[in-house]
């Protein structure tokens, strides 16, 4: 099943990637090629097969509830694009 140009625009928006008309057209052709390759996998009968999320069949290790981190915001914010009074600044969020 082929993607449409609308699909490309929709997923580009979901992924917050700016895409102009020419880029969308080019992406559409390439994505359809890739999904052509992927289609082979879709035809396989996987009835009764459990999905495999992880390479190894082990369970999660948990950590003890202890504060192990110290304040490093000055270091972290030294590489931030825009900070003021200890806050990261972004363009105004309108709700």
């Amino acid at each position: 099943m082929a993607l449409s140009l609308d699909d490309v625009r929709r997923i580009a928006h979901l992924a917050r990637i700016g895409i102009d008309e020419a880029e969308a057209q080019a992406a559409l052709a390439q994505l359809n090629d890739v999904f052509g390759l992927i289609a082979e996998m879709q035809a396989v009968d996987t009835g009764g097969v459990e999905p495999m999320s992880h390479a190894l069949d082990v369970v999660q290790r948990l950590r003890e509830d202890a504060v192990t981190e110290t304040d490093q915001h000055a270091l972290f914010q030294s590489i931030a694009p825009h900070v003021e009074n200890g806050l990261y600044l972004v363009p105004k969020v309108i709700e």
Binding site: M41, V44, T46, V49, E50, P51
Partner: peptide, 10 residues
């Protein structure tokens, strides 16, 4: 589906 086939490969 890809995760299921992943198991078949494993």
């Amino acid at each position: 589906q890809a995760q299921r086939v992943r198991r078949l490969i494993a």
